[in-house]
Nucleic acid binder design. Structure first.
Length: 826
DNA sequence: GACCTGCTGCGGGTTG
């Protein structure tokens, strides 16, 4: 470590703040001074941010000798990319304070959609030395005219929360922007930029760094905290296992046990898995403990942005005692005093759970404490699995996104809207990114043709001739001002569903609900949103008008959100835990509590051991069921169920209805399912997988759905001007139209190929499916027959009632289910 | 009265 003036100054300051400079900070600073790029990985509260932020400051103080006053005019030095706008606000505050204390005359600027036009113009005249920016706004900078000297003094780019962007198209946006800025800087000044990432713990940190800084010539380093963060995981275990339902996902049965936890803590975050679950919990806690009124808030993605800002601010000042939230508060509460975290229901993955645990106990010396509240009996084993995973550090990887052509097309037009681009230079730059390292010259040519002529099928339409060649300087540009403006409005990779804003008659926004939910409402109907009881009045101009309701009885909207499956990591550990419950005596409380339930399971059919795979054939009044438990998450189960159903139907003509959850799936038929030890290995075989998947599912229809986002991102479909967005249906139908055109006239279309690839990879999760089938083949498949449901099959059975939409059938099934319950409890 | 499923994230600037 170079003991320079700047370094000592910073250490002195950190000591006055009672922030011990942790060993890895020195390492970060040293490697920065030596010109490294790198990735910093440490738990929350270890000062990752200071460590990375202060590195360029130290370099600056060194450059200037002892002087803190700048010589001459200093431009933009550090670009700090954050995935969240709210995070930028908190960071700016902390950075400004640090700069002030160190007497460094730098300015900090925030640039994102929250910033006013005049502020942006001010920035353009004189860039702040530190710019906090989102990936989208960074691309918007590239889409500006005369942007070439913005980056003149830049020495460092930081990607904060890099694990969060990695593996997404937003991450690819960062990769592309970095490639361009590197290109501009090295072309003009022949100097290399330092690029630093800040990341939570994930399984593939090396790869994460390689994505951020793919340059082989650059010196690279991963800096880790020397000490581990202590995490205490406490399950909320019911007095008797009977208190926990066998199925269900809400968990409010144990709510009484949560009240004392909240009361004895200063501030508690309660994470739920869905927005409607958060609303229900909010109402329920208020009901059983009315004193929480005024100290409790609810925070999720469908709550009005202003209200959420207020809640985050209130967390800051410590006004709130408890906040019920979804993953909307996963990031960006680092600066807020939270001492207790509760996870309701399955966290679905190890990394996510540990990240949430880290929201509490914000210093390396404190222990993070997280309570786990199971929502059904089997979920208790998930805690046991996570405890093991935390101990052995089996944390999921984030797989980088590869070859998203929609993002590339958008990027090329972005550059053309800005200063224009040289296609040869840009091809080289793009090819040097991790995401596009496999990009072929002909694929790039196809992209060029697409943005200049609309590809081979849209040549007749001038609105797709976006980019023109400028003979005078040899650059590709967008000259049409309307096309340029439309493009700027559409920069980004987040394609949202059409949601309607909910507003009081008297004014004031509450939040958002989906079109389809509103379509079911009649005037006078009551629903919950943002913890309030509302009465529906009418829909006008895409606004849902409501008034306050005094009635207690309301319904809660359910939003059609993403379906986050159980991670394969957690699934694997969970399978181990299942096999252990019946064997020997256990220290682990969760396993002990589960024993009676597993004994019942064993008495009806079987509890699979580590090298076994259980298939249950259950005959009830309802029909013939096949249950299987791969623990691979519901997406994989959905495809696997369709695959097995298809393969059985090749043996005899038979039709099935299918149900699944994160643990397993069910096939149900009114005729007997042909099954024996030979057949079962055949139907679970990995052979001929791709062909059988194609035959068992409608890949075209699924790809078409994926194509909607791709069409929006690539600029094929215009989503409308702000405040006048198109309805879902319109976007769906125009993207479907393009899909059909390409299928018929342009089968080599890269966006079409991308839609199929994304479907196979992210929807059907084919690699994971293949892996699962291979594992099943190598294990002993245990076939068991029974006349009633088992504890394992019961939750899937209950879920399946909700899957089916036809109402009379549903009614009938619920009746049959009830009978099955009683039979089970005999 | 019991029972409820499905996350998050972003967002015009030029030219007169």
């Amino acid at each position: 470590m170079k003991k320079t003036v700047g370094y000592q100054k910073v250490v002195k300051w950190l000591k006055t703040r009672k922030r011990k400079p942790f060993p890895f900070q020195e390492e970060t600073w040293a490697s920065y001074l030596e010109g490294y790029s790198g990735l910093v990985n440490a738990p929350t509260g270890f000062g990752k941010t200071y460590s990375v932020f202060l590195a360029p400051i130290i370099a600056y103080l060194n450059e200037e000798g002892n002087g803190s006053k700048r010589k001459g005019k200093l431009g933009l030095r550090v670009i700090w990319i954050t995935p969240l706008r709210s995070l930028a606000k908190d960071l700016a505050r902390a950075m400004e304070e640090a700069l002030f204390q160190l007497d460094v005359d730098w300015r900090v600027g925030v640039r994102n959609g929250d910033i006013s036009v005049s502020e942006k113009q001010k920035q353009k005249r004189a860039m702040p030395q530190v710019l906090l920016i989102t990936p989208e706004s960074l691309h918007l900078l590239l889409a500006q005219k005369n942007n070439d000297n913005i980056f003149d003094d830049l020495t460092c780019i930081v990607a904060d929360e890099w694990h969060e962007l990695l593996g997404t198209k937003r991450g690819v946006m960062v990769e592309l922007a970095l490639s361009r800025i590197k290109g501009m800087v090295s072309f003009r000044e022949n100097r290399t930029l330092r690029i630093w990432g800040i990341s939570a713990t994930i399984g593939n940190l090396e790869e994460a760094l390689a994505v951020l800084q793919p340059d082989h010539q650059v010196l690279k380093i991963i800096v880790k905290a020397a000490t581990e963060k202590k995490i205490q995981i406490q399950s909320i275990i019911p007095d008797t296992i009977e208190m926990l339902p066998w199925a269900g996902h809400l968990g409010i049965k144990l709510a009484d046990k949560l009240v004392p936890v909240i009361k004895k803590s200063k501030t508690t975050l309660v994470f739920t898995n869905t927005r409607s679950q958060a609303e229900i919990w909010f109402q329920h806690l208020l009901k059983i403990h009315p004193d929480f009124a005024g100290q409790m808030a609810i925070h999720h993605g469908s709550i009005d942005y202003e209200l959420r800002n207020w809640i985050e601010e209130a967390l800051h000042t410590g006004v709130l005692k408890v906040v019920i939230c979804t993953s909307s508060l996963d990031l960006g509460v680092d600066f807020k005093p939270v001492d207790t975290v509760v996870q309701v229901g399955s966290p679905k993955g190890v990394a996510r759970f540990l990240q949430r645990a880290g929201r509490s106990g914000h210093s390396p010396f404190e222990t993070s404490k997280i309570y786990f509240m199971p929502t059904h009996a089997l979920e208790l084993l998930e805690v046991a699995a996570i405890k093991t995973a935390a101990k052995t550090q089996q944390i999921e990887s984030r797989e980088p996104f590869i070859l998203p052509f929609d993002v590339l097309l958008q990027y090329l037009v972005t550059l053309a809207v800005g200063n224009g681009f040289d296609n040869k230079i840009i091809f080289e730059e793009v090819k040097n990114t991790y995401a596009f390292s496999e990009l072929l010259a002909e694929e790039f040519d196809w992209c060029m043709q697409f943005i200049t002529q609309g590809g081979s099928s849209l040549q007749a339409y001038p609105e797709f001739h976006k980019v023109l060649f400028d003979e005078t300087d040899g650059l590709w540009k967008v000259t049409n001002r309307q096309i340029a403006m439309r493009h700027r409005l559409h920069i980004g990779t987040i394609v949202s569903d059409a949601m309607l804003k909910v507003k009081f008659m008297t004014g004031g926004y509450v939040g958002m609900v989906e079109e389809y939910f509103v379509s079911k409402l009649k005037p006078g109907d009551r629903f919950n949103l943002a913890g309030r009881s509302l009465e529906f009045v009418m829909v006008r101009d895409m606004l849902v008008l409501v008034k306050r309701s005094q009635h207690k009885k309301t319904i809660t909207p359910s939003w059609l959100g993403g379906r986050l499956p159980l991670s394969s990591n957690l699934g694997a550990i969970l399978r181990q835990k299942y096999s252990q419950v019946l064997i020997g005596e256990h220290e682990e409380e969760e396993l002990k509590v589960m024993k009676p339930l597993f004994e019942l399971q064993e008495s009806i059919t079987h509890v699979p051991r580590a090298d076994e795979f259980l298939v249950e054939l259950i005959h009830t009044k309802e029909g013939y069921h096949l249950f299987a438990y791969p623990f691979e998450g519901r997406l994989v189960h959905e495809v696997m169920a369709a695959l097995i159903a298809y393969r059985i139907s090749r043996l005899i003509p038979i039709t099935f209805s299918i149900a699944m959850n994160d643990y397993g799936f069910e096939l149900l038929s009114d005729q007997e399912i042909p099954m024996d030890d030979a057949i079962v290995y055949d139907v679970f075989s990995p052979d001929n997988l791709s062909a059988d998947i194609s035959a068992s599912i409608n890949a075209t229809e699924m790809a078409k759905r994926k194509f909607r986002d791709i069409a929006c991102i690539s600029g094929l479909v215009f989503q409308g001007y702000p405040g006048k967005y198109l309805k879902n249906k319109q976007i769906q139908s125009s993207s479907a139209l393009f899909f059909d055109v390409f299928e018929s006239y342009d089968p080599k279309n890269l966006l079409l190929r991308q839609a199929y690839d994304e479907n196979f990879h992210y929807q059907l999760e084919e690699p994971r499916l293949l892996h699962a089938l291979n594992r099943i083949q190598q294990s002993t498949i245990v076939l068991k027959w029974a006349e009633r449901f088992t504890p394992f099959s019961f939750p899937i059975k209950v879920d399946s009632m909700r899957e089916s939409m036809s109402s009379e059938e549903l009614e009938a099934r619920i009746e049959k289910m009830k009978a099955a319950v009683f039979k089970n409890l005999d």
